[in-house]
Design a binder for these strands. Structure first.
Lengths: 198, 198
DNA sequence: ATCAATCTAGATCGATCGATCTAGAAGAAG
DNA sequence: CTTCTTCTAGATCGATCGATCTAGATTGAT
């Protein structure tokens, strides 16, 4: 019964991408193993062959995988203009466009999952932490390239990410892009202010 | 039909506060009805007497209740100084102190729950939206009082809340107050910049 | 004192949870 | 071919999920 999918990719890879998609949309506890298997077109046997530690191990790997998608989104914003302030502001715009495409159902790949397992799954929490730090580094690198001193860049990158994450939460709950549009203008302003004060 | 009855029984209130505490810490799906009943010292009978629609109805009410705690926290920050920029920055500091007290386990009363039910429970999503808007209004009011024009204040309040929410996420995942401390300095800078440009 | 409304108690329901297990298909190596 | 390893299939497990139900306790009005 394997002939259904034409040129089917790795079962393992399908499990990871399916899990990443479900975690992004509805978090950890709402995502049942059965739903993952259905979405991935796999079975229990395969899952526990590749991930002996079960759902938790699979989720941790899926978060790291999903983090790459979000990084690509950030990169698109950060490289969208030679002007640093514009590039930073565009991160919020690009994010808003991406969220709208799923009608605000698919969000940051780690936020929903991270918030519900804090203090209860070190494995997943660490994967979340690594993802956030990677995004932060990505932003910081662009800030440095745009002329922000290294230490100020690390801090500013942190706040940019904070603002993006928070504005995403507010936008998704409200079902409109207001918070992200506002964040765009304020991030532009903040970036300019930091550069002047540095 | 009993609106705001004057002599409210203990049990109902205990259910709401217990639910608020659990939702804040671990979100919606991870919080079982049984855990709520244990924490509240109540039984199924009581729960479904007061909340015929069950867990979802109880959660929506608990979110509105928990929102008041967070509002009090914000108020403490906003009134902590006559200087507007300092007051805004102190919101992040006060939040960091509060989170640390629970060792980063108890966060924003709506974030975890909201993120996992977006698009799946209009009842809870609306309660979340109302809470976020109430906090935003609280901040905006202080901004106006501090000299920010009304329209600019509404927008700035939105970004302040976004940044606080996002920095809280990052701080809780990392288990330290770095993101919130950084947010404090940048929110001060941003508030000053907005006032100058207005 | 009586009675109806209000509130509490908890056994029990079917559904679903994540996990485990045995069985066998598919490929590679000899 | 045989044999060993890798991967898939899905039945089944005990636990727990949210919800429902009947029955009993408490209360307030008359």
């Amino acid at each position: 019964m394997t002939a259904a999918a034409p040129a089917e990719p790795d079962t393992r890879a399908r499990l990871v991408t399916a899990t990443a998609a479900l975690l992004q949309r509805q978090g950890y506890e709402s995502t049942s193993v059965k739903a993952i298997l259905t979405e991935a077109g796999a079975t229990y046997g395969s899952l526990y062959h590749f991930f002996p530690e079960g759902k938790e191990q699979l989720a941790a790997e899926a978060l790291r995988f999903g983090a790459e998608d979000f990084a690509a989104l950030l990169r698109r914003g950060l490289e969208s203009s030679d002007d640093l302030d514009t590039a930073v502001a565009n991160c919020a715009i690009v994010l808003a466009e991406s969220l709208r495409e799923s009608e605000w159902l698919d969000g940051c790949p780690v936020a929903a999952t991270a918030l519900e397992i804090i203090g209860r799954s070190p494995l997943i929490q660490q994967a979340s932490d690594e993802s956030l730090n990677a995004w932060r580094a990505l932003i910081a690198e662009r800030l440095v390239r745009g002329g922000v001193p290294a230490h100020a860049a690390a801090d500013l990158a942190c706040t940019i990410l904070s603002t993006l994450e928070g504005a995403e939460l507010i936008s998704r709950v409200a079902g409109d892009d207001e918070a992200l549009r506002i964040a765009a203008t304020h991030l532009r302003l903040l970036t300019a202010a930091v550069r002047q004060s540095a």
